[in-house]
Simulated assay, not measured.
Amino acid sequence: MSGYLTSLIAIVGREALRFVHQRERFVAALVRPLVWLLVFAAGFRAALGLSIIPPYQTYITYETYIVPGLCGMILLFNGMQSSLSLIYDREMGSMKLLLTSPLPRWWLLICKLLGATAISILQVYAFLGIAAMFGIIMPPLGYVAALPALIVAGLMLGALGLLLSSFIKQLENFAGVMNFVIFPMFFLSSALYPLWKMAESSVLLRDICAVNPFTHAVELIRFALYLDFNGAALGWTVLATVVFTSAALWGYSPEGTGIRRRG
């Protein structure tokens, strides 16, 4: 067990050091949601009227509505960023050293996933702190209650990034795959607008949003921030986490097609 614990501390510590040395990564992670919060929300405020929907007990501003979605955005982009670092490590050769260690490969990848999730959650709380400075404040206990939801959502999106990295052979191909995955997941979700609002435009799009795992991750965070529990969102997010993680571990296994293509 000491070997497992040592590897966990080492890999998570390496992720933390990489994050500390890449300050622009932290800034970029906060700039994206802040642009949506302070710029786009101002334009959408009048265009999107919001009714009283759970977990809200009264009418809310559009800025308040999109904060959980922007928390999900941070988790989503950081999950993809962590997969980018995996591809970089593979091209530099450090990934090969990691995967040939005596410890099980699945444990090393889980440690990588846990490290990336921890960094993502720190970025989310930094964003929530900045949002509070602009007057968008959640219930005090909501910040604590949101932690388990952020962990589950972060693991799901990190596992998705891990899965993508197992099948991308070259760093140059990553940008296209990122755009193909990130933007549809983000825009076809409840991050920026409620599903009932989407149904007014297209029932088909509403249904697509309803089966999007990112939608359930956002709703899980939204309800937790307001001290409410969404069992359906939790169930679908956990299910997606298990599926993505299992597929990623298979992709990195010697039998996985991702490994065979790279020889």
Rank of each mutant, 00 (worst) to 15 (best):
V203N: 05
F214W: 01
N212P: 06
L122G: 14
V181H: 00
F77H: 10
S120P: 04
S51D: 15
L163P: 08
A146C: 13
F186M: 11
F134Q: 08
Y65M: 09
P194M: 12
L164Q: 04
M185D: 07
L188S: 03
I221F: 06
I130L: 12
S189Q: 10
P102A: 08
T100K: 09
L162T: 00
A28E: 00
Q57R: 15
I9T: 13
K112Y: 12
Y56A: 13
A248V: 09
H216C: 06
P254E: 10
S253Y: 02
G161C: 09
M1C: 03
Y4T: 13
S94Y: 04
P55Q: 08
V39D: 02
Y65W: 11
I119Q: 12
N173E: 12
L171N: 03
G13L: 10
Y125N: 11
P102K: 05
F77L: 15
G142K: 07
W250S: 06
L98N: 01
L75V: 11
A175V: 10
R105Y: 00
E24I: 08
F19R: 05
R32E: 03
A233W: 05
V181Q: 00
I74N: 01
I137S: 12
I119A: 14
S120D: 03
E24S: 14
A248G: 09
G161H: 08
F214M: 03
A132S: 09
A41N: 02
A131W: 00
E15S: 15
L150S: 03
G235R: 14
I221A: 02
H216M: 10
I221T: 04
P33K: 02
Y226R: 15
L50P: 04
Y125E: 08
E172A: 11
